[in-house]
Design a binder for these strands. Structure first.
Lengths: 339, 339
DNA sequence: TTGTAAGCGTTATCAG
DNA sequence: CTGATAACGCTTACAA
């Protein structure tokens, strides 16, 4: 079943020309007499010639591929960025090669080395757990681009969103609806985005003259279960609150289930805001008010940007804003109704 | 910034040996005198030598990579299979190279050719829209494995789940709870799995002596919006039903929102069953009863199987069963309460 | 045990 | 315009 691959050599012999001529025709590098061109072209077809990528790349040094490492390919958040990258690259000769970092510095490092070893022309990191110095060092070896993380020393290669602003927007929205006892469920402990969103929350509170109550800040980890448990516990402690701002949509779902279990309605009894605007949150019941991250567009722009850099164009890193999407999980506070 | 890559040649010169000796030490192919070994090893370290994958692969013909093409990497369903594949491969020297088919034969074909061109050692298709003959032809060029689709002529390379049984299980569950007016929202039109699930639904109905009512079958496409719209319309037509079985979890969410909009409770007024058991459905409100597909395990087994085949082990393709996960979106029919 | 040299399949650089 | 021939970086007979 395994027919040996036909090489440029056999084509040359079949067409009665030299291998250089064949190469020229394949790549359109130079003019070739009409008759030879014809002979070669039919030989190419007849033998079903397929160029060998490895041999090509070995010479040119360009693999026409771009490595993409996401913390987690499964996460819908990164998946959407990846979709954008893929779509943008579809029109070009470049191929994305995907890999996961699994939120672990070891795995990430491994994935990076593996892709460099495979001679990808550039590397895009969708989130990263490696220390700045290490990323800088890698950046010296290969064109490196990072999404979701500012690396000092290579700021112009980083695309970050203003998560602080997102947290602020979400919280201010709740405040404007009259809420003052607003719970915040944080993201994974040390993660920068999570910290920024918390800061946004605090800042909005402060600007509205609402004292910060640490008891209303619940430690989460971006997963449904933890948020669910935390909110359950909060309610059992009889704490008083009228709104919840979760640091991502998944935790908002967890919180929503806790409220459901305790017979609290959303938004009549408790208003709920998420973060990310994952596909699907528009179809939660009720549809979730959340902070939209333009992930797909980011993916497209990022890929485009990388390509430009590879073409030595020296473009500006694109910039994106977060925006609040008001749906049906938030409503004006009904005074007199609280726990 | 671009230091030229150090080659085995420079290492050899630095260590005062020949390139073959260096190669031998790197690959452990043969014994080398202790002193030379030491010299080479320090040279390797000092120069920071990194072997060139392309040159290696050009010779060996093995790229130590496995191409994975999913209809859609973003779909949580396939993403979970991919996660399984990745995890299994993590322990080996093999690298997965991911790509999307975007539910289009053209894109899929393109992705396949691209990966073959890149000399992946095997190809895993997670779903496929190409005709059988084409897949067979590809299978002649490279070890090919297909998940979610039976290709005649290469059955032993296909891993399929019994979707009929899943549909049957879901429907029977509802019947056992006393429901007789059960709506089914189908998956994308021509897709085999969707057809099988519908057949399972019909078969369960028949076995219970419940006449099949085509008006209760709603045409879906696996997306929330369509299911939402279809159920809204159904309710406005004043059709009578007490349960809904959606062909996937996303459509179940869409249906759930429609019920929510009309003030119908789940499961008190209408029972709801999904399909897939995507991460997150356990945290819908209420947690969704659904048919579990062991996607992660499938990914792991599949990768393991591919590796074995590559090692000429001739293993049996693993087999998996679907199972019903009963959560809180279904309950016994309250007689007298219906629309 | 070690080195020389012949590939692997292309592209690039020369002369002609 | 075209054809030798030298790379590309590495592995692997084949000698020594």
């Amino acid at each position: 079943m395994k027919k040996r691959n036909v090489t440029i050599n056999e084509v040359a012999r079949a067409a009665g020309v030299s291998i250089s001529t064949v190469s020229r025709i394949i790549n359109g590098t130079a003019f070739v007499a009409e008759d030879k061109r014809l002979a070669v072209e039919t030989a190419l077809k007849d033998l079903g010639f397929q160029p060998n990528y490895l041999a090509r790349t070995l010479i040119s040094g360009k693999s026409m591929s771009i490595g993409v490492i996401a913390e987690d390919i499964v996460s819908p958040y990164y998946a959407d960025v990846i979709r954008g990258i893929e779509h943008q690259l579809l029109e070009t000769d470049y191929q994305p090669i995907l890999n996961s970092g699994h939120w672990s510095a070891t795995h990430e490092k491994r994935a990076i080395e593996s892709l460099i070893y495979r001679k990808v022309d550039a590397l895009i990191l969708l989130g990263s757990t490696l220390p700045d110095e290490e990323l800088l060092e890698i950046s010296g070896r290969i064109p490196l681009f990072v999404f979701g993380r500012k690396v000092t020393g290579m700021e112009e290669r980083c695309l970050v969103l203003n998560q602080f602003q997102g947290g602020y927007l979400a919280t201010r929205h709740l405040i404007e609806l009259g809420h003052r006892e607003i719970v915040h469920i944080t993201g994974a402990n040390m993660q920068v985005d999570a910290q920024e969103r918390l800061r946004g929350y605090q800042s909005a509170l402060e600007d509205a003259g609402i004292p910060f109550n640490p008891k209303l800040v619940l430690q989460g980890d971006y997963l449904e279960r933890t948020a669910y448990l935390a909110v359950m516990q909060l309610m059992e402690s009889l704490a008083s609150f009228t709104a919840i701002f979760a640091s991502n949509d998944q935790m908002a779902a967890g919180a929503r289930l806790a409220l459901y279990r305790k017979g609290l309605r959303v938004p009549e009894d408790v208003s709920l805001v998420g973060f990310d605007d994952l596909p699907g949150t528009a179809f939660m019941s009720p549809p979730l008010t959340t902070v939209h991250q333009p992930t797909y567009e980011i993916g497209k722009s990022l890929a485009d940007h990388v390509l430009r850099v590879l073409q030595e164009e020296n473009p500006q890193m694109p910039h994106f804003e977060l925006s609040l999407v008001v749906r049906e999980s938030t409503s004006r506070l009904h005074y007199g109704l609280r726990r």
